[in-house]
């Protein structure tokens, strides 16, 4: 039981980071970024590349990889999402699908599709840590939980207190009015994309260090969007409980079902949510009409 709880917490942390990425982008562009999973993969490969360039220097490699990911987010916004203004949301979502395809193709072209382990180059190890109650998790499992908690705390403070964060919320609600109030919303939205890519790639770096790195990791992203929707697409606060819920269902379905069922369980959560309360646990009902 303790093990199940610990696993749930770890999976939930991964989903929460990815889910935050979805919600940040959704609030900025009203677009569900279906390339979020591939941004996660990209983060892993950035870490792999920086770790190979600066072997044994995680202090250098980690921030550099994170910065590259955030930069990718900005580039995506400028190159792909900004020109989609005025197009139907559906078209913009499809652009993110194509972005995912492009990212995956680029990753295979550059890094081939071999399975990698960035940890080797970083010069770090990943020893198991026994917890209270007999549960055992790996060190990077703990790092994942810590990263998720830290990211959400920082994000909360940023959005609640800092003027830039308030402007980001304002622009997310009404871009035009924000612009008329002097807010350069293109800048703000680019920042949203940067934060989103950062969150995704953070998850990707930790996950790939913990488990393995391969181009098909992006599938994790597809499963995490269930989290974003269950929590409410426009609700950052909803991501955490939703991530816990979806992770719990998934862990339970591994325990009492089979791996195939656990793969599909996030989608089952999503379907149930769509039928019962389509705007999500903490989302606003009006969002249904906006898309």
């Amino acid at each position: 039981m303790a093990q199940a709880l610990a696993t749930t917490l770890v999976v939930a942390s991964l989903y929460a980071l990815l889910g935050a990425g979805y919600v940040l982008v959704y609030r900025a562009s009203r677009v569900l970024n279906l390339a979020q999973g591939d941004l996660l993969t990209l983060g892993g490969y950035f870490l792999f590349a920086t770790a190979a360039t600066f072997p044994g220097a995680p202090v250098l490699a980690l921030p550099l990889a994170a910065a590259l990911s955030a930069l990718t987010g900005v580039l995506v916004y400028v190159a792909l999402m900004r020109p989609m203004a005025g197009h139907p949301v559906f078209a913009a979502v499809l652009v993110t699908v194509t972005l995912g395809i492009l990212l995956r193709a680029a990753i295979v072209l550059v890094f081939t599709d071999r399975t990698r382990h960035p940890l080797q180059n970083l010069g770090l190890s990943n020893p198991p840590r026994p917890l209270a109650g007999g549960a055992v998790v790996s060190t990077f499992d703990l790092v994942m939980v810590g990263a998720a908690v830290a990211f959400f705390a920082a994000l909360f403070v940023f959005l609640k207190v800092s003027p830039l964060g308030i402007r980001m919320r304002a622009a997310g609600e009404r871009a035009l009015l924000a612009s008329q109030r002097g807010i350069n919303f293109h800048g703000v939205f680019a920042l949203s994309w940067a934060l989103s890519a950062f969150a995704g790639s953070l998850a990707g770096m930790i996950y790939s260090s913990n488990v393995r790195l391969e181009p098909s990791l992006g599938i994790l992203g597809l499963r995490a969007f269930a989290v974003a929707l269950v929590g409410g697409l426009d609700s950052l606060g909803g991501v955490v409980p939703a991530a816990l819920l979806v992770a719990a269902v998934e862990v339970a379905s591994v325990r009492w079902g089979n791996p195939l069922l656990s793969d599909v369980s996030p989608f089952l959560c999503l379907l149930v949510m769509l039928l019962v309360r389509p705007w999500g646990l903490f989302g606003t009902k009006e969002e249904l009409e906006r898309v």
Binding site: P163, I166, R169, E173, R174, L177, Q180, R181, T284
Partner: peptide
């Protein structure tokens, strides 16, 4: 500076935050 006809305030922000969001 424009005061628009509709959608003129940020409804999900508090009054204070509405004023903070402005870039002078």
């Amino acid at each position: 500076v424009l005061v628009p006809e509709r959608d003129k305030v940020f409804e999900t922000l508090t009054v204070g935050e509405n004023l903070d969001a402005v870039v002078p």
